[in-house]
Computed example of a mutant assay.
Amino acid sequence: MIWNVPNILTALRLIAAPGVAVMFLFFTRPYADWFALVLFVGAAVTDWFDGYLARAWGQQTKLGAMLDPIADKAMVVIALMVIVGYSSMSPWLVLPATFILFREVFVSGLREFLGDTAGTLKVTSLAKWKTTLQMIAIAVLFAQGVFEHYLGMSIWGMDPEMVSSILSGQTDDLHGLWWKEAGMVWAGVIGLILLWVAAGLTLLTGWDYLRKATPFLKEDR
């Protein structure tokens, strides 16, 4: 195995995947949200750098080709698990997350079954866009958690009438409630839209992989 810079970056991304969940075990919110967001975004950036450096420096290896998709899937699956687990279990969030998780398990199983012929399921440009959208959507949803908990900290001890008066502009907003609520709402909306688009691309690429694998699934006669 060759441990060059691209492969080290990929391995660090793989290690960072469970680290996102660990943040919520050792830190209270919103600090856990902040640390998870920074760790996830930092790891997602390496997804571009390791591939770019491997091509630019001619350091593409079998180890990197094996670790890269595993690291991507681990990041997405674990981060979605954390987001859904700490959410209100809204179907608007649970459904696209379920589609994404189902596709990742299905395609991984398909590749394992195909064995030596799994090379027919090479990563397409559409699949790369799918992964990029998934990571952006997850980062935005983590940001929503940050806004949500800063808003909760700011209104702690306030009665609902006071909060409503501040948000409606009738009372001076001395604690920044308006921008915290706006950040929470917009991050939630944008994150869900991106997640649904990513889920659509996820199902589309999953169907494409199944179509390519179909000739290898036919029974011999």
Rank of each mutant, 00 (worst) to 15 (best):
T131K: 02
F102L: 14
F113P: 02
K122P: 01
L114E: 03
V146L: 07
L95E: 05
V84M: 03
Y86R: 14
F113C: 00
L93F: 11
V84Q: 03
V123D: 12
S90K: 04
S154T: 09
L167K: 10
T171E: 15
V163F: 08
V107H: 00
M162E: 14
F113G: 03
I83T: 12
L93Q: 11
V163L: 03
T131P: 07
S108M: 12
S90L: 07
G85D: 01
F142W: 04
L177M: 09
V84S: 03
M89W: 11
P160D: 14
D116K: 01
L121K: 00
L167R: 13
T117G: 01
V105W: 14
M162H: 14
T98P: 02
V107P: 00
A139R: 08
T171M: 15
V105Q: 13
S88Y: 04
L101R: 00
D173K: 03
F147Q: 07
H175R: 13
F106A: 09
S88F: 06
A97K: 09
I136E: 11
W156Y: 08
L93H: 02
L101Q: 06
T98V: 07
I155P: 09
G119T: 00
M158K: 15
T124V: 05
A118V: 00
L110D: 00
H175S: 11
S154Y: 07
M153Y: 12
T171A: 15
T132F: 15
S165P: 09
G176Y: 10
F147L: 08
S88L: 07
